[in-house]
Design a protein around this nucleic acid. Structure first.
Lengths: 178, 178
DNA sequence: GGCAACATGTAACTTGTTACATGATTCC
DNA sequence: GGAATCATGTAACAAGTTACATGTTGCC
């Protein structure tokens, strides 16, 4: 129901090929809505059939040709209409938290190792977000589009900070009670 | 790949019917791993076929009969083996954050209303988590199983606190820049 | 009698993942 | 020659949602 709209969001800023979109969904907007390339190509076909996108072939020098997609007026209207619809908070789905529910029946040392691993991953992600903020959003006057992205990025930063401190405390608590 | 394991986690604590499991996945463990009832019944059948669960019919007075599932030894081993496998951090997927990426092309007043709505929902969820903590985890000596659940609940509380403060700040920023 | 909660399911569909498949170009 | 990156796809499967379907019991 919504990869469709996330694609419209990406294309509202600039025309992109499937490959470029896949890269966006692996970084940038991908921090808040991930998608794999088979899913993207499948969705592009559907959106084109619905008339929300048009495609044009671009030949490139030194690289293989690519098919670039652009929003149609109908596509931009669909994006606007979608933006008016209510959204539910996303459901949390985390295997690590589920494992904590069975603390008696799982491998404790393995869990500790997994918490360490998570801690490191969230630290790395946090560094990445902070780097992006410094390099791309440091200017005092941002366009409103950039402003929006920055607000989302702030959520990313807090989210990772939260994970980092939670992992640290969880490790401490579990060590003391071992 | 993992509802299967979340069910094993639930049944490692106590035997449950499909209906009871559905309730757990709507509250409790459901805060960290949600599942709908068709999915649960489908999974129970598979787990039973694999020999990880057995079912027994329980006749009840004053209520319809139910089928109660219990872990087999194989099931408990599968749970332990799963707990040793590495876990990836879950992907964030949030339409509201995606909308911020297209701040120029969406309905701004609608977005503000959605942020208000989210704020209220996260506040409510936070109240709920705090109530659970006070009523169910206030005791100084918790079993190790309860300890684990409390650590997960702490994540839930921080997660919601984070959302609440982010929503407040996002609303403020967007109001000033309107 | 009607509603809410209990209890269990199926069918159809959408969404998402993994593995496979192909071929171009650039750089070492 | 081989690896990396660019570029686009298909096929099969797994996971998740929504709507439909059925019947019980307790309570007002």
């Amino acid at each position: 129901m919504a990869l469709e709209h996330a694609i419209l969001v990406c294309l509202s800023e600039q025309d992109l090929s499937g490959y470029d979109l896949a890269k966006q969904f692996d970084t940038s907007i991908g921090f808040f809505w991930h998608a794999s390339h088979p899913q993207i190509y499948r969705e592009l076909r559907k959106l084109k059939d619905q008339g929300l996108l048009v495609s044009t072939d671009h030949s490139q020098v030194g690289k293989p040709n690519k098919t670039v997609y652009s929003l149609t007026d109908t596509g931009r209207e669909a994006l606007f209409a979608w933006s008016q619809r209510a959204v539910e908070p996303p459901a949390v789905k985390d295997e690590l938290l589920v494992r904590l529910y069975a603390l008696d029946d799982i491998d404790r040392p393995a869990l500790m190792a997994q918490l360490h691993d998570r801690l490191e991953k969230h630290q790395e992600r946090l560094r990445q977000y902070r780097r992006i903020k410094e390099t791309q959003y440091a200017s005092p006057d941002l366009s409103s589009r950039q402003q929006g992205k920055l607000i989302a990025l702030e959520m990313g930063i807090r989210y990772e900070e939260n994970w980092v401190s939670w992992c640290e405390e969880a490790l401490e608590t579990l060590t003391n009670r071992a």
